[in-house]
């Protein structure tokens, strides 16, 4: 699906250096790493919203900046951390996901079906006409996820989209996403959640530290080195590897 060749990116200091990565179709990838390591930057590069300073990104064997914006939005959707200022209803926000598909002045039946499905999956049916500004942070995140589901793209990029959700919704939504055969790349803070993915990408010091598949166990020593923590503190989070 994706091929990243020697990607580097920097603002004032280098954020990402010589990242080379192959993303396979319909697999679930998680990205973890310390704060400020460039997780979000990597996601934005994959979304085509940032341009790498060097290296190139191939999406289905074509450079990502060859795709027109609308075309790209049919392939990739992004759930980012955002604030909304106007009191749109839940339904209105989710239906914006259909922007690239819809006709200018109306929604097709197909559009409406996709919107309703997305709302259903994210458990928003009973307050779809509520104002977005009145929701709790978890409900709000589910609206943003629903919007990208309505966008109906094969690739889904999530930037800590689950951080305020309770476990029930995380699992139901993830289940639904996986059953929809999507390529998912998600940034996580919580290592336990990250390990639900097929592959976990560990980012550190602007580089890929290691990629570990779901079946591979993570050794305490590895985590100790990766997070630079003491063994005595480490005992408490040992269970992370069990899920």
């Amino acid at each position: 699906m994706y091929k990243l060749n020697n990607i580097s990116f920097s603002y004032t200091k280098p954020i990402l250096e010589n990242i080379t990565l192959n993303i396979q179709k319909d697999k679930f990838y998680s990205i973890v790493g310390p704060n400020g390591v460039g997780k979000t930057t990597l996601l934005l590069l994959l979304a085509g919203l940032l341009k790498p300073k060097s290296g190139n990104i191939l999406l289905e064997n074509k450079p990502i900046d060859f795709y027109p914006k609308k075309q790209l939005a049919k392939k990739i959707s992004l759930v980012s951390q955002e604030r909304i200022f106007f009191d749109y209803t839940v339904y209105e926000i989710v239906s914006m996901g259909r922007y690239t598909h819809k006709k200018r002045f109306y929604f097709s039946i197909q559009d409406c079906i996709k919107i309703d499905q997305a709302i259903e999956i994210c458990g928003l049916s009973h307050f779809k006409n509520e104002s977005i500004l009145k929701l709790s942070s978890g409900e709000y995140q589910r609206v943003l996820i629903a919007r990208s589901l309505a966008q109906d793209t094969p690739i889904l990029l999530l930037d800590e989209a689950f951080s305020n959700l309770d476990l029930k919704y995380i699992l139901t939504i993830l289940d639904a996403l996986i059953s929809l055969n999507k390529t998912i790349i998600s940034v996580f803070h919580d290592l336990r959640l990250a390990r639900l993915a097929d592959y976990t990408i560990f980012l550190k010091n602007a580089k890929i530290y290691k990629i570990i598949s779901k079946s591979e166990p993570i050794s305490p020593v590895f985590l100790e080195q990766f997070y630079e923590i003491e063994t005595s503190q480490f005992y408490n989070i040992k269970n992370f590897t069990l899920i």
Binding site: L78, S80, E82, R83, E92
Partner: peptide, 14 residues
């Protein structure tokens, strides 16, 4: 409508 949400998501919505 979409621009009034957020620049980043507006771009990713196409």
């Amino acid at each position: 409508d979409i621009i009034s949400l957020n620049e980043l998501s507006a771009q990713s919505l196409g």
